[in-house]
Design a binder for these strands. Structure first.
Lengths: 169, 169
DNA sequence: TAAGATTGATATATCAATCTTA
DNA sequence: TAAGATTGATATATCAATCTTA
């Protein structure tokens, strides 16, 4: 062991491998979310976040979720969700009502028109996700990606809903 | 081989593993870019995209890049970069001049103040990247992440600068 | 005419209040 | 008083023009 011991507030730089991984990850975040957003805007006139909200509702029991739960599932803040749902409601795809069991909550319900919208646009979007993400990856890489993503998400927020999909993961 | 042959425009759904990977990736993109943006806004008063622009300039020869090259490196559009650089120029961190060799290009130069800004904020940001991304991953996962990201980026844009950092990758 | 860059109008994100119910 | 949700002001992203130089 040569050299001085590292001090707590001394910056720890990235290795070459880490630098490469980091630039790649930043690139993927920017380009992939841009590509998915562009596909949905072009084919459906909505943003990727809009889609995530509609998709989460379409899979919820009774096609209904509390706003706060929906915000967590869609990985967005409550103020942001509130604005987005107001727009989706104006388009007739979502309807909000106070939760009868506790008036502090607001329930968001996917309407019949909203279901129709999701049914209409989901195949095209899934096809794009498949084309950009899964077709280029091996099965092993799909598993690796999940494991890597879970570790990062767990560090940012151990309560993230992505982490509790499967009990023992 | 039972069942009908799949038709070209029949939607191919995601497997369970793919669904899990997909939700995780969407979560990582939203939460990680949010976390990094929040750290930089809090500690430096700039966005993550601003930082990427300043960092790219700081590593360029002569701390100078053409706007179009800088846009590609920062994974953003030219209109977006133009707006951002106008702001960075107003803060005194960047200076633009027409390229003497071809007036259609604009050169962006990181000023001394800009260098000082990067030097001041880089360690804190790198520390956050390390904490959220690299500390939770094994060395093998860092390599896996790079390989996975390259495959996705190559599909979106084979010309992406991330892909050409190392000649033979 | 084409390439690079910028501008302006519109849509959306963000954050700090504020509101509402329990 | 606290939790959930909304609102309003400001900042930023996006896209379609427009501008400039070669």
């Amino acid at each position: 062991m040569s050299g001085p011991a590292s001090q707590p507030d001394e910056p720890r730089w990235l290795t070459g491998d880490e630098r490469r991984a980091w630039m790649t990850l930043v690139g993927v975040m920017a380009r992939l979310s841009g590509a998915l957003d562009a596909q949905l805007r072009r084919d459906a006139g909505i943003s990727h976040f809009d889609y995530t909200v509609l998709a989460a509702l379409s899979e919820a029991p009774g096609r209904t979720l509390r706003m706060s739960t929906l915000a967590a599932l869609a990985e967005g803040s409550l103020p942001r969700l509130s604005q987005v749902v107001a727009r989706l409601e104006a388009k007739g795809w979502v309807q909000r009502t106070p939760d009868p069991s506790d008036g502090r909550y607001t329930l968001a319900l996917l309407t019949a028109d909203g279901v129709a919208k999701v049914v209409a646009i989901a195949p095209g979007h899934v096809e794009e996700v498949r084309r950009l993400v899964f077709d280029p990856l091996t099965k092993a890489q799909v598993h690796q990606l999940t494991a890597i993503g879970h570790r990062i998400l767990r560090t940012i927020d151990p309560e993230d809903p992505c982490l509790s999909e499967r009990p023992g993961a």
